[in-house]
């Protein structure tokens, strides 16, 4: 009992504060989504009216799909790029240290700076256009900024998040001791069998973590969207911010917030399950 109190006191300023703060914020979001704390003062009390408003808006569903699309593509591409490199750099060789340091470099660059750098490079008078025109590949500069497929945003997310995936995955890959792989080889497992039966299952957790964290980060993106995204579409975060900021509709924003958290949650569950399924299937192959 005394011990429990002691633990409680120790946890209070750290976990306690975090949970109190985040709990209050979360409660506030959910409560406002259901009509409480209506600052416009028109109505107060539980209601589903704000859900009705938001969920029947085309712009909202467009934002929802858009965020899901951006987040899933970014997560999958970043991991798909980072995984083979992490495997390849498992054993050090000449140049591999420099290479992995360079791969991690974008971690040091804040997202907004990354967005600026990209926009600067791909803009109408940016490096890419000038270079390709100079090299004679294109007759005249092309417009690449704010493309309607969101390639610029996905590119930014990958640029920013790939090093993070690389860090997680290379940690997992390097934690596999050489003798374990040797043992598998010794027992008759060829290259692909070693990958399927040893490396893949031992890195599943890291891969899931990387996918989930990138997905959640990209689903909640605001700055890449507003700087480099197509003006005709919103991301969930930018839609939420515009509802709250320019329209003063806190309750609508709260509905979007809850939906964004739901998107993050279900995206995370979906990706985790997908990886599990792939690992299982590949492991079962004879």
């Amino acid at each position: 009992m005394r011990n429990a109190i002691r633990i409680g006191l120790l946890l209070a300023p750290g976990v306690g504060l975090v949970l109190a703060f985040m709990g209050a914020v979360l409660y506030r979001a959910v409560a406002q989504a259901f009509g409480l704390y209506d600052f416009s003062g028109t109505s107060d009390g539980l209601s589903l009216a704000h859900w009705q408003d938001v969920l029947t808006t085309k712009r909202f569903w467009r934002a929802f799909q858009w965020s899901a699309y951006i987040a899933a593509s970014s997560a999958v591409i970043a991991v798909a790029l980072a995984y083979p490199i992490a495997l390849w750099l498992r054993k050090p060789f000449r140049g591999s240290l420099i290479l992995s340091a360079m791969l991690k470099a974008p971690l040091l660059v804040p997202g907004l700076v990354a967005a600026f750098l990209l926009v600067n490079v791909i803009s109408y008078h940016g490096f890419v256009n000038e270079f390709l025109v100079w090299a004679g590949v294109w007759a005249e500069p092309r417009r690449m900024q704010n493309d309607s497929n969101g390639f610029a945003i996905i590119g930014l997310q990958v640029w920013k998040q790939m090093p993070f995936a690389f860090l997680l995955l290379s940690g997992a890959v390097q934690a596999i001791p050489d003798p374990v792989l040797n043992a598998a080889q010794d027992l008759g497992a060829g290259k692909f069998a070693r990958f399927r039966k040893i490396i893949l299952p031992l890195t599943t957790k890291a891969m899931q973590a990387a996918l989930v964290l990138i997905f959640i980060g990209a689903a909640g993106d605001f700055s890449f969207q507003t700087v480099a995204g197509p003006p005709s579409v919103n991301s969930m975060a930018s839609y939420m911010a515009s509802l709250q900021g320019s329209e003063g509709d806190w309750n609508g924003a709260a509905v979007v917030a809850v939906m964004l958290m739901a998107l993050s949650l279900f995206g995370a569950i979906g990706l985790t399950a997908l990886v599990q399924l792939i690992t299982r299937t590949l492991g079962r192959l004879a």
């Binding site: 985040m22 600052f39 939420m240 958290m261």
Partner: peptide
């Protein structure tokens, strides 16, 4: 649980903290 702030979308935290 202590990691919750890391997975909460930044704008959700920001807007409802402001609220």
């Amino acid at each position: 649980l202590v990691l919750v702030p890391l997975i909460m979308p930044g704008f959700v935290t920001a807007i409802f903290f402001a609220s």
